[in-house]
Design a protein around this nucleic acid. Structure first.
Length: 763
DNA sequence: TCTGCTTACACGTTTGAACCGC
DNA sequence: AGCGGTTCAAACGTGTAAGCAG
């Protein structure tokens, strides 16, 4: 049995408290507080509703892997290099940059539902101090999980693959009582958007294969007011809606000051100095500052397909993927000056405070955008679409280019792309990988904390539940995550590294991890009877059993537990969906530690009923474990050369089974590896620069006491299983209502590839 | 006093209705 | 009547700053 004693991380419970309470309010009174309705539904649903006929299986041939490409990844990376901040307001604020992706590898005839989920990146609360984000304490109670469903959902694979998919209409709010369906987040917390592609034969027939994608560069801090002026400038220069605040806009600082002066002068009947007024005249500023200088294209980003294309607001702008022309270097180098080792390791803070950055000619807008700190991780490769090897066996050494010659920020992927992955539009390509084909690379313990983890930023594989056999074709995916290690801690949220490992919380610390690979495991056919009993009531539905009643995936129960494995190898997530015919509400629940809730029933009860705390079998149903291949202990943190050669791990390392008891047993999205600035940067070592500051080592560890610090070389990225449930209460019906409703805001963008997302307002 | 949040504000963009001509 | 293009205004999105609360 698990308990707080065994897993201190459960102390993070407060995060779940709200969630649970919220669910409690949302669930029928007759239902036990815990597990939630969704959880129970999830457990009960699998056999009947979630039989996911894998496309590949259906077609009798290898379907290939689902690949998601973040189109505006370059823009995201720019923000990430500074420390992306997202404004959240009571009424809801859109995200900028927006999530724009392209999908490939889908079965053209199958229908899919696309979901956007925002999950906590860690269990800390942050504060912006000294030009950097510092963890100042524990995260607040977790808020109700909500997802943004793309209005086109469900749509066929052909539909999704024929256009750019934008989630720009998704709104973030800090209003915990929000009734508009916006994604509720805490201010001053760090979050990670996660996208899900779920097979759905019908709006009500969810299930089947699920693919989850995480783009580390999309991590962001939530704020109610921008903390970092660099972010403000970057947003102003990138967001069309903020044009008014640009140098040549009417709402820029000088104009505002001028207006203020005039106002004051009028109020006081005093004449303002003519020169001041004149100098503040809009015309003056506009003339002095050529329009071009205010455009992102002119701000050292001219070669980047931003801002307009990225923003997707400009009707005249080319689709992002169209922007880069073959042979035409995207020249990210401008945005990301060729980094030197020092630059890479240098804390962003220094960069930000560097006179060159602040006072140079860069200045005018664009200067702020040039952030070398991030460059290393994303070399000019952006120019060439960074394609990530499609699900491929992790054994191809070729995918792990050793030489510095590798231009792609994702070396391994580069190789992969050349071989099996057609180059796609610029952007990060994250192919999905069958979970089975993505076994843990190294059972061995994680390297010493002192060794800086080299993140193989190469290919980002998404583990697909659909395929149980290794992908025959494609570059090896394993090498791409040599240094990535998943904390064995059951609590993915926080695995504070030793101080030596995480000397600084600086955003500049290279910690960028490749998009987490998520493997979703199909619900096991043999669900524990107890679980079924518990969940039977709320999840009863009239849905016909799936074509494939049982998943092809190994039975979770039969699979060996990876609990003891310090190196989670794969992000394994199980998607379960249950449908309540009574309402169309869709609730995305995340596994929550029950022990954290003081009001919870006795721990024993929780353990008995909760998949996480309960039996491994039940856990396997709804939990997903994220894992990245761990770096061999002996291997230098920055050296991953040996990793690529790792043979496929034995089947025993398959992530599916791991009923690892944990507060966040479920899917652990790959940890964001921490980069040790002190470690030498080797050219062959491809790092994802730190998108966000590393966790504060000084903070109390949430890791289970049993977990040695050495195992948590990298701060693990919290991931939760995507649980799509239907809540009996209407208040949570927004998502499905949205689905049923039509795209009120749908429109065809000029490019034709722009998908408009209907609002989630109540219909 | 400090920090963080809310709100009003001004500006620019988006959107769709209205209008016009063919 | 139908279609396509243009115009215009309301709605919406944005960052800022003042004010408020803890």
């Amino acid at each position: 049995m698990l308990g707080v004693e065994m897993y201190p991380s459960l102390a993070m419970g407060p995060q779940r408290l709200t969630d649970c309470c919220y669910r409690e309010r949302e669930t029928p009174s007759h239902l036990p507080l815990f597990p939630t309705t969704c959880e129970m539904a999830v457990r009960a649903a699998p056999q009947r509703m979630l039989a996911p006929p894998v496309p590949s299986e259906v077609n009798g041939k290898e379907q290939g892997t689902v690949v998601m490409e973040l189109e505006n990844s370059s823009l995201w990376k720019q923000f990430s290099s500074i420390g992306t901040e997202m404004i959240i307001t009571k009424t809801g604020r859109r995200m900028f940059p927006q999530l724009r992706v392209k999908l490939s590898g889908l079965n053209p005839s199958l229908r899919y539902i696309l979901l956007l989920e925002v999950i906590p990146a860690d269990a800390s609360r942050y504060r912006f101090q000294g030009d950097s984000w510092q963890a100042v304490g524990g995260a607040e109670a977790r808020l109700p999980d909500r997802v943004f469903i793309h209005p086109d959902s469900p749509a066929t694979g052909t539909h999704w693959q024929s256009r750019t998919i934008s989630f720009h209409r998704a709104k973030l709010t800090n209003n915990t009582l929000d009734t508009r369906g916006h994604i509720i987040l805490h201010s001053l917390h760090r979050y990670q958007p996660r996208l899900h592609v779920i097979e759905a034969r019908d709006v009500l027939m969810w299930g089947g294969g699920r693919h989850s994608f995480v783009f580390p560069e999309t991590q962001f801090f939530t704020v109610t007011a921008y903390q970092n002026s660099k972010i403000t400038e970057l947003k102003i220069n990138s967001n069309p809606f903020a044009k008014g605040f640009r140098e040549n806009g009417m709402n820029n600082k000088r104009q505002r000051e001028a207006r203020l002066k005039r106002k004051i002068s009028c109020q006081t009947n005093q004449q303002s100095e003519p020169l001041d007024v004149v100098s503040c005249d809009p015309c003056d500023s506009t003339e002095l500052l050529p329009q071009s200088t205010t455009d992102c294209q002119e701000l050292d980003l001219e070669d980047l397909p931003i801002p307009d294309p990225v923003c997707g607001f400009s009707p005249n702008a080319r689709a992002f993927q169209e922007a880069p022309v073959a042979g035409e270097p995207l020249d990210l180098g401008q945005a990301y000056p060729t980094p030197t080792i020092a630059e890479i390791t240098a804390p962003i803070e220094s960069v930000q405070t560097t006179p060159s950055a602040d006072n140079d000619g860069l200045i005018d807008n664009s200067a702020q955008m040039i952030l070398p700190s991030y460059t290393p991780a994303f070399p000019a490769t952006s120019s060439s679409p960074s394609s990530f090897a499609a699900a491929a066996p992790p054994q191809c050494p070729a995918s792990y280019p050793p030489g510095p010659s590798t231009v792609s920020p994702y070396p391994s992927l580069s190789a992969a792309s050349s071989t099996s992955q057609p180059s796609s539009a610029s952007g990060s390509l994250y192919p999905s990988v069958s979970s089975s084909s993505y076994p843990s690379l190294l059972p061995s313990p994680v390297p010493a904390p002192t060794s800086s983890p080299s993140l193989p930023d190469s290919s980002y594989h998404l583990l697909s539940p659909s395929s149980s056999s290794p992908q025959p074709q494609g570059p090896p995916s394993m090498p791409s995550y040599p240094a990535l290690t998943q904390s064995d801690s059951p609590h993915p949220l926080v695995s504070p590294p030793p101080p030596s490992t995480y000397p600084s919380l600086h955003p500049s610390v290279p910690t960028l991890a490749p998009p987490s690979i998520l493997s979703s495991s199909l619900p096991p056919s043999n669900v524990p009877s107890a679980a079924n009993e518990i969940s039977s009531a709320p999840t009863s539905c009239s849905f016909p059993p799936p074509n494939h009643g049982s998943s092809s995936l190994p039975n979770p129960v039969a699979l060996p537990s990876i609990t003891s494995q310090p190196h989670p190898s794969i992000i394994n997530s199980t998607v379960t969906s249950s449908i309540n015919t009574q309402c169309n509400s869709l609730v995305l629940n995340q596994a929550s530690p029950t022990s954290a809730f003081p009001s919870f029933p006795s721990s024993s009860a929780l353990h008995a009923s909760h998949p996480i705390l309960g039996s491994s079998a039940s856990y396997a149903l709804a939990s997903s474990t994220a894992s990245f291949p761990t770096l061999p202990p002996a291997a230098p943190s920055h050296h991953v050369s040996s990793v690529p050669n790792h043979p496929l791990p034995p089947a025993s390392y398959l992530p599916f089974a791991s009923p690892t008891p944990s507060s966040y047993p479920s899917s652990e999205i790959g940890p964001f590896p921490q980069f040790n600035p002190s470690s030498p940067y080797l050219p062959e070592m491809v790092h994802h620069p730190p998108l966000m500051p590393a966790l504060d080592p000084s903070l109390p560890s949430c890791l289970p006491s049993s977990s040695p610090a050495s195992n948590s070389l990298y701060s693990s990225f919290p991931s939760y299983p995507l649980r799509i449930c239907q809540d009996p209460r209407s208040s949570f019906a927004i998502p499905l209502r949205h689905i049923y409703g039509q795209h009120r805001h749908g429109h065809t963008h000029g490019q034709g590839t722009y998908l408009d997302i209907g609002g989630r307002s109540l219909l």
